[in-house]
């Protein structure tokens, strides 16, 4: 399995990279961690003529908590998220996610920005970022654009990024009082894409859920939020029947298909089960 030929650029600044994207348009592809792109190129499922390697650009790999939000550089490796004490203490949903992406070696190369920009509904970060209500910062020829995560994913492998825009930063709201989150994934074995994955971030005040966002992995043609499940939770105590209602709502609103990972019916039911479990875990963390 040998990739086709391409021309290679390794710009040292975002501006330079944008210039290349601008110049080569549809023929160019960004190489971030490469852990999805390079296998696709080896199978010649992807045959870009131009590869713009953004690994040489300084200053895109960081995890910083600022006054209002957590800022993550797009080129931050999954392993850095996984090993960050800050993230494991304050952003458990993200910590959960980073731990189950592919395998430990892939996580040393794979980047959070690449995972999102690839817009593969089988990837784990999209659901998590939907649950966090993340904000993305992209730079293009006209400067920075702020994109709300709800406006980012347009379809399979499709985002609202323009061809000449580069995802630079992911911003997560800082966890407020009473907030908790969790990501749970069913996989056939370690390293597998999710059979189903559920990301939840919620806030519980006086025993009642006051805010909740739920993202689902690999059960629709594009990364999706389980809005009906969120609605089932909000305003209620996250226990018993309400969990079941939320789970059922998520199961009903997702759009899985039958494949080697299971039938549509099975996947819907797993969404129900995993949604309930993820909510429970998130609520436990509120207490903790």
């Amino acid at each position: 399995m040998i990739p086709g030929k391409f021309e290679y650029f390794a710009p040292s600044s975002v501006k330079e990279a944008i210039g290349l994207l601008d110049r080569y348009g549809e023929d160019a592809k960004i190489l971030a961690g490469g852990q999805s792109l390079i296998p696709a190129m080896r199978f010649r499922l992807a045959q870009p003529e131009i590869l713009v390697d953004i690994n040489r650009i300084e200053g895109l790999d960081y995890i910083r908590e600022l006054d209002d939000y957590l800022a993550i550089g797009a080129m931050t490796r999954e392993a850095s998220l996984e090993k960050s004490a800050l993230i494991s203490q304050r952003y458990p949903l993200l910590a959960d996610t980073a731990k189950v992406i592919a395998d430990p070696l892939v996580r040393n190369m794979a980047t959070v920005g690449g995972n999102l920009a690839h817009a593969d509904p089988a990837n784990d970060h999209p659901a998590t970022m939907l649950a966090y209500d993340a904000t993305l910062v992209a730079e293009g020829p006209d400067g920075d654009t702020i994109i709300g995560i709800d406006d980012f994913f347009l379809g399979l492998f499709e985002t609202s990024l323009a061809k000449d825009q580069i995802l630079k930063e992911i911003r997560l709201p800082k966890p407020g009082p009473g907030s908790g989150g969790a990501y749970l994934k069913i996989e056939r074995k370690v390293g597998d894409y999710a059979v189903v994955g559920v990301a939840i971030q919620l806030t519980v005040e006086n025993g009642t859920v006051t805010a909740a966002r739920i993202g689902l992995t690999n059960v629709a043609g594009a990364p999706m939020r389980a809005k009906n499940a969120e609605a089932a939770l909000i305003g209620n105590a996250p226990t018993g029947d309400i969990l079941e209602k939320a789970g059922q709502a998520a199961a009903a609103e997702c759009e899985p298909w039958s494949d080697l990972r299971g039938s549509e019916e099975y996947k819907r039911d797993m969404v129900r089960i995993v949604t309930k479990r993820a909510i429970r875990k998130a609520v436990e963390r509120v207490g903790a």
Partner: peptide, 17 residues
């Protein structure tokens, strides 16, 4: 595989709770 067992469980009215 889990789907095979899942089918039996649900056909028998067994759920996690």
């Amino acid at each position: 595989t889990p789907p095979k067992i899942w089918k039996i469980l649900r056909d028998n009215g067994i759920d996690e709770d």
